[in-house]
């Protein structure tokens, strides 16, 4: 059985139906991408998984635990999220040490000292960053801290919401390489949400294209590379991500 099983997920905020019947199954160790434009509901799917958005209808099972209104502490130890904006997702008045020790305290881990040092080392920051504040770090360094915070509980699943879209291209490459390495070292399962098809094609074996809260189609990386998309919307996304083509050159 799949590690994460989403069946006919609906998310509504009052009148607004943000997600309208999305299904997906993600196996252990897989990296699964969700692509779409703003308002497509791609981030809402992730937020519904980790409990930041209500599941209005449908069934979601994560590591054999059917998700209800509340998530157990064990769930949060297994499933962690990395957010888009590294400037907004770290507390400006907490040192990196405090950011990293909070989840350890909540989940009652004992050897905090060594875990913090190990987590900093794994994301390529080193112990020298431990007592700094977020404003003393660059965007790429902050995103590494956010990844360290997620990994410090040794989760099995990482939910990545546009982890590199606020970063420069050269920093994006470093963060993507870091995520890639951590996945192969630890056998993590990723769900990565992005508007950038190239990032998803690089990181994920399978991907789901979403539009207006619905799933448009599911593709494998190979079929994406072969440009064998069945839906017109996916083809439009593909041609738009190639760059600009003068009018008339494309139908």
């Amino acid at each position: 059985m799949a590690l994460i099983d989403i069946r006919d997920l609906h998310v509504s905020f009052g009148e607004v139906q943000a997600v309208r019947g999305v299904s997906a199954a993600v196996a252990e160790g897989e990296s699964y991408g969700i692509v779409g434009e703003s308002g497509s509901g791609k981030s809402t799917v992730l937020r519904a998984l980790c409990g930041l958005a209500p599941i209005t209808a449908g069934a979601v099972t994560v590591v054999n635990e059917p998700l209800g209104r509340r998530r157990s502490a064990a769930f949060h130890r297994r499933v962690q999220m990395v957010f888009q904006d590294p400037y907004a997702s770290l507390h400006p008045r907490h040192t990196i040490d405090r950011v990293l020790s909070e989840p350890l305290a909540i989940h009652g881990f004992a050897d905090r000292e060594s875990r913090i040092l190990q987590a900093l080392d794994e994301v390529g920051l080193g112990a020298g960053f431990r007592f700094r504040y977020p404003h003393q770090l660059s965007g790429g360094q902050r995103q590494r801290v956010a990844i360290a915070r997620a990994l410090i509980l040794e989760p099995r699943v990482l939910l990545l919401d546009e982890p590199t879209s606020a970063l420069d291209a050269s920093i994006q490459a470093e963060v993507l390489n870091l995520l890639d390495r951590l996945r192969s070292e630890r056998g993590l399962t990723y769900i990565l949400v992005s508007h950038d098809l190239a990032v998803v094609a690089h990181m994920c074996e399978r991907l789901l294209v979403m539009q207006h809260g619905r799933a448009v189609e599911e593709l494998t990386r190979d079929s994406l590379r072969a440009r064998s998309a069945a839906e017109a919307y996916t083809r439009a996304l593909l041609s738009a991500s190639e760059g600009y083509t003068p009018a008339g050159a494309t139908p």
Partner: peptide
Amino acid sequence: QGLLNCLPRIEGGRRPLPTL
């Protein structure tokens, strides 16, 4: 050259991505 090379491509290619 570095800026061009560090972009991921749909066609795939180098893994890990070359960094600048």
